[in-house]
Design a protein around this nucleic acid. Structure first.
Length: 478
RNA sequence: GCUCCCAUCGUCUAGCCCGGUCUAGGACACCGCCUUUUCACGGCGGCGACAGGGGUUCGAAUCCCCUUGGGAGUACCA
């Protein structure tokens, strides 16, 4: 039987970094086994789910390079792939469950439930100890009350036995009899609940593997019960490790940039992000770390998951991004810059050679700008448009001499109508300083750099200066 | 509280299943040197870990138990 794996996000926000990693794993496993990868939208929580998020998620997945075979916008043999469009299926099964005694209507009101939960807490009992109040109500009477229109939910009747399953990452996992109570499967508004829909769909859509993060591990016990009631064989479960922040807690919004969208906006390269994410909880058999996720084929082995939670470290992400940035062709880099070039450089940007020169210059210097490296737009500023004086111009005694001479030459060049200093002219300036003024070594290079850029490090001057408008240079000299 | 899961350098991890080849390997970060008449890249090197305690064994990072620590779940969220 061919492998079928699904990624089932809830459209309640933008695609999360953790979600992207899970999606990536699902995608890679499906690919490695030549199976199918399915996108299913779990939007049964009417209040929180929004169509715009669904669209944004699909868009982000596309940006990540994670392509699925079946999904809400693609269709497929087992659709629809949006749970809100499958409500009747769930309701029919719930009804069947009630008739067969696997589930029952519960008339507990929200306030009653709160009271019982508080009572359980004070008695140091498990909070679900009282959820089964209507469990043994006569079915005929329950039916009568439901038909009379009394508010109710449908609860699953916990068969109260021990459960266990073999997780492909965790190994054998056992759950005790009273781990959960009689949990809800249909809300009072008539909408079904996650654990119920998830199992029904995984069954109906013929999933062979359920791959998700460890936060769902405990849900498995409820799901196992539903599989049994359905008379269905559960799929293979793969609970991979959680992504955590610096406080070691589950990665969430408060940890900073945690949505894929934010990295897109900062121009991170998707291949770099995927490569990094792939290694957070999984290891390559060859112990290599830079690799193309699309060239893994059967290398992606689900026996290589690490069980412990992984810290999402942006410093290391930046390293991956740098590696990918360097590997880009000069042409691709130049294309990437196009949108980032400020209008005052428009005359430059028209020249392909200028763009290529700049791209090449940039590539050499990627590391230098590691803080802002992903942001091509800002790179431009850092490389060419350094405006702040961060260094004392007089830290070298030769600096004033250099500045005076450079000032004179720049005025001359400008007077001749040039918009920038050519490499030849720059070389002449260097030679003059060297030969006529006898300045050499560090004072020469650093002096020139400080005079021209106001900083003590940056790209090779002979390359950067010809790319800088003469007006910008003049401003710095004044 | 209860249940489940986890535990190798600061971080991501290899090794663990099938004990010896591990004075524990790689990568990020950090530090140093070399290269470059700057910075960076690159090369070389350094710092740096088997949570603790008991077993089992000739031998344990690897197997077993306990302790400690961390995390997740405990919803009419997913």
């Amino acid at each position: 039987m061919s492998v079928r794996v699904r990624f089932a996000p809830s459209p309640t926000g933008y695609l999360h970094i953790g979600g992207a990693r899970t999606a990536l794993y699902c995608y890679l496993i499906a690919k490695a086994q030549k199976g199918s990868f399915i996108l299913r939208i779990e939007d049964t929580d009417l209040e929180r789910s929004k169509r715009e998020y669904e669209l944004a998620m699909i868009d982000d997945l596309k940006w990540c390079g994670i392509d699925y075979d079946e999904g809400p916008d693609k269709g497929g043999e087992f659709g629809p792939y949006r749970q809100s469009e499958r409500t009747q299926t769930y309701l029919d099964i719930a009804k069947d469950f009630v008739e067969k005694g696997f589930a029952y209507p519960c008339f507990l009101t929200t306030s009653e439930l709160e009271e019982l939960t508080a009572k359980a807490e004070s008695e140091k009992k498990s909070p679900h100890a009282y959820h089964g109040k209507y469990r043994d109500l006569d079915p005929a009477e329950a039916k009568k009350r439901v038909e009379a229109g009394e508010a109710h939910i449908i609860r699953f009747k916990n068969p109260r036995k021990e459960w266990s399953f073999t997780d492909m990452v965790r190994g054998d996992v056992k759950f005790p009899v009273d781990m959960v109570g009689d949990f809800a499967i249909i809300r009072s508004n008539g909408m079904p609940v996650y654990n119920f829909c998830c199992v029904i769909d995984d069954h109906l859509m013929k999933m062979t593997h359920v791959i998700r993060a460890e936060e769902h591990l405990n849900n498995t016990v409820r799901q196992l019960m539903i599989y049994e009631a359905l008379g269905a064989e559960p799929p293979r479960f793969v609970h991979c490790s959680l992504l955590v922040g610096e406080d070691r807690q589950k990665l969430s919004k408060r940890h900073g940039a945690t949505s894929v969208k934010q990295y897109r906006e900062q121009d991170y390269l998707p291949a770099a992000l995927m490569n990094y994410l792939c290694l957070l909880g999984w290891s390559h058999p060859d112990e290599t770390d830079i690799f193309d996720i699309n060239q893994m084929d059967s290398i992606f082995d689900l026996n290589r998951f690490n069980k412990s939670p992984a810290f999402y470290d942006i410093t290391k992400l930046k390293f991956f991004n740098e590696q990918y940035l360097r590997a880009l062709s000069v042409e691709d880099l130049a294309t990437g810059f196009e949108k980032a070039i400020p209008s005052e450089h428009a005359y430059h940007a028209k020249e392909t050679s200028w763009k290529l020169d700049f791209a090449e210059l940039f590539r050499e210097k990627v590391q230098l700008f590691s803080d802002i490296v992903p942001q091509l737009g800002l790179i431009f500023d850092e490389t060419i448009e350094q405006t702040e004086d961060v260094v004392d111009v007089n830290s070298w005694e030769t600096t004033p001499t250099i500045r005076d001479y450079v000032k004179t030459r720049v005025s001359e060049i400008k007077a001749s109508g040039s918009e920038n200093i050519t490499s030849e002219e720059f070389k002449e300036i260097m030679n003059h300083l060297k030969k006529e003024l006898k300045i050499k070594g560090k004072p020469l290079f650093m002096g020139l750099r400080v005079v021209l850029t106001g900083k003590t490090h940056g790209p090779d001057l002979s390359k950067a200066i010809p790319l800088t408008p003469i007006s910008t240079i003049e401003k710095r000299l004044s």
